[in-house]
Each structure stands twice: as structure tokens, then as C-alpha cells.
């Protein structure tokens, strides 16, 4: 569950006051306020980053955000890329393609994701983010295996859920009916691009942003994964990429018996639950089987501190 600290304005930093003010304005009025907070040289990094994240759903001017991609502060760079991922067009992609490495691994991974995401949204070729292959395992025989549950949302629920994405929707035009996916304790919403159902060739002929997957907590979803498809012969490869650029699941989509089928599996990275999902994307989306192993993902271990 989320918590918000409510303090009187006089106890907030100037940038924090701007952030609060922006929430009370129309999008048109809020954008310049947030941009000034994001660019303020005397604002804290936390406040600048907060302003940028608030801009993800507000379509700020591309050039202003691109300038912040080269900010000296890595956290600001990554937050600016998170905004560009939402609004990036051909001009933004061109600018990002000529952007030199940003100097830290996390920002460069995010830059790679931003380029890939915009290219796929525009239907342009871009190298796959990872050479990782799906792990071939029989998860169903694992004692900790749990079936995924898939539930079709109504059109109204889908619209409401998509509009409530705190992260923004990455420019996806969602299918009228999204699906709630329950994964042991976790709840997700899967939004597939509407073109996938209506025109199977759409995903087989060009690179595409095929879907986004929102993680639900506190009643609202935020996108945790974007699904990029890349044509491969008669089918297409799928990369399910976490929003920090980590490729977590890979798979494929292929035509069979007048349907468009898909399967994905995890790549065995630490912290990602072993999971397989398979089903149909067109003519209508359906989950045929999905298995995860709750408690099966050993994350990385933090290190003891050594106070100085």
C-alpha cells in the first residue's frame, strides 16, 4: 500500500511545492511548472527526479526532456529517459541514436531500452536487447508450482485500468479487452496492442510494441514490463523487458491453424520467478497455460555495511 506524507507547504522545499502545485493544475499548466522543477539547478535530485516522473503522463516538449537526458546527475538522466520512452517520436529516436554513452551502466541500459522501445513503436528495426533464450523446464512438476489465472476485463474496466496507469501507457493503443493476470500473490494487467487481434500480420511484418504489463499495488497499475516483438521468418521473437531495461522473459509468436499463438519463459535471471506462459493472441487473446514457481527466484544478496 502507498503512503503520502502530507506536510504544510511552508515545510516543503521549493521544488516540492512546485510538484504539489502541479497536481492541482491542468496538464497544460502543469508541464511548464514541472519542467522548471526538473531543471532547477538548486533543487534536490530527489525533487528533480520526482518532477520528471510526474511528466511521464503529460506529454512535455520533447526537446526540453532530451536536454535532461545529458544531465550530469545519473538519476535525472534515467528519469528523463523514462519520459522520452512515453513520448518519443522519430525525431527523439534520431536524437537518442546519436547520444553518446551516458557514463553509467544503468543509464546506458535505459538508453538502449528507450531507443528500442521507440523504434518498435514506430515499426523500425532495432537489435534485440538480449541474446538470452527461454529456459526449457518442466515447471509444472516443481512442488512450488502455481498456475497463473487469467481473467478478461470488460471494455469499461480496460479503459479505466489503462487510464489509471501511473507510469503512462507507452503510446500503446490497447485491445478493447485487457486481462487481469494473477501470479500467486501478485496481480498484473496485460494490455495487448489492439492491432495484434485485428491484423495478425501487424506483429509479423515489422518490429512492434506488442503489449505492456502493469503491476497492480494500492489499487492502481504501473507498467513493469514492455513486450517487444521482432519478426523472425514466419513468426516473431518476443522480449519481455522490465522498465529498467532488464530482459526478463523471451519467447515467440507464430501463426498456426488460423490463429496467432505465443509462448514466453523466463531467462533464468536472479530475482525473476521461473515462469512460462503460452496462449493465443489472435483472433482473440487467450491464456492456454501459465505456471510460476512462487518462492523459486533467488534474488541477489545485499552486503553488510562497514561504517566509517
Amino acid at each position: 500500500m502507498p503512503s503520502i506524507v502530507n506536510l504544510p507547504p511552508e515545510r516543503m522545499s521549493p521544488a516540492r511545492r512546485l510538484l504539489r502545485l502541479a497536481r492541482e493544475l491542468s496538464a497544460e499548466e502543469a508541464v511548464p511548472v514541472l519542467l522548471s522543477a526538473a531543471s532547477a539547478p538548486d533543487a534536490s535530485t530527489a525533487d528533480r527526479v520526482g518532477a520528471l516522473y510526474a511528466l511521464r503522463t503529460l506529454s512535455p516538449p520533447r526537446e526540453d526532456v532530451l536536454a535532461l537526458v545529458r544531465d550530469p546527475q545519473p538519476q535525472v538522466r534515467r528519469a528523463a529517459l523514462a519520459v522520452i520512452e512515453q513520448i518519443g517520436d522519430q525525431a527523439a529516436l534520431d536524437a537518442l541514436m546519436t547520444t553518446q554513452p551516458l557514463g553509467d551502466a544503468a543509464s546506458d541500459r535505459r538508453l538502449d531500452l528507450a531507443r528500442a522501445l521507440i523504434a518498435h513503436r514506430l515499426g523500425e528495426d532495432y537489435p534485440r536487447l538480449s541474446e538470452a533464450a527461454p529456459l526449457d523446464r518442466d515447471l509444472a512438476s516443481d512442488p512450488g508450482a502455481v498456475d497463473l489465472a487469467f481473467h478478461e476485463l470488460s471494455s469499461a474496466e480496460t479503459s479505466a485500468r489503462f487510464a489509471s496507469l501511473v507510469s503512462g501507457g507507452y503510446g500503446l493503443q490497447p485491445s478493447p479487452l485487457a486481462h487481469r493476470m494473477t501470479c500467486a500473490r501478485g496481480e498484473y494487467v496485460v494490455f495487448v496492442a489492439r492491432q495484434v487481434e485485428s491484423d495478425p500480420d501487424w506483429v509479423l511484418q515489422r518490429p512492434r510494441l506488442a503489449a505492456v504489463v502493469g503491476y497492480v499495488l494500492g489499487g492502481r497499475p504501473a507498467v513493469q514490463f514492455v513486450v517487444l516483438s521482432t519478426p523472425t521468418g514466419s513468426g516473431a521473437g518476443l522480449e519481455v523487458v522490465r522498465t529498467d531495461g532488464e530482459v526478463s522473459y523471451v519467447g515467440s509468436v507464430w501463426p498456426a491453424d488460423g490463429r496467432l499463438k505465443f509462448s514466453v519463459a523466463d531467462v533464468g535471471r536472479p530475482g525473476t520467478a521461473p515462469t512460462t506462459v503460452a496462449g493465443v493472441l489472435a483472433p482473440s487473446i487467450r491464456l492456454e497455460r501459465g505456471t510460476t514457481v512462487a518462492g523459486g527466484a533467488s534474488g541477489r544478496q545485499s552486503s553488510p555495511v562497514n561504517p566509517q
Binding site: 511521464r56 534515467r78 528519469a79 544503468a106 507510469s167 499495488l217 492502481r220 530475482g271 544478496q301
Partner: peptide, 25 residues
């Protein structure tokens, strides 16, 4: 060197990614 972008969390999805990737003892 290992923290990636997790010092500044965008939203609940990134909070989950952080707790997915890292555990304390």
C-alpha cells in the same frame, strides 16, 4: 556498482523490481 537505477524509484512497479532483485539476509 550493482544498484542500477534503484536509488530513485519511479513507481510501484520499480519498487517491486527492486525487491525482486535483492534480498537481505
Amino acid at each position: 556498482a550493482s544498484a542500477g537505477g534503484f536509488a530513485a524509484i519511479a513507481d510501484r512497479a520499480e519498487a517491486k523490481s527492486l525487491s525482486d532483485d535483492w534480498n537481505g539476509p
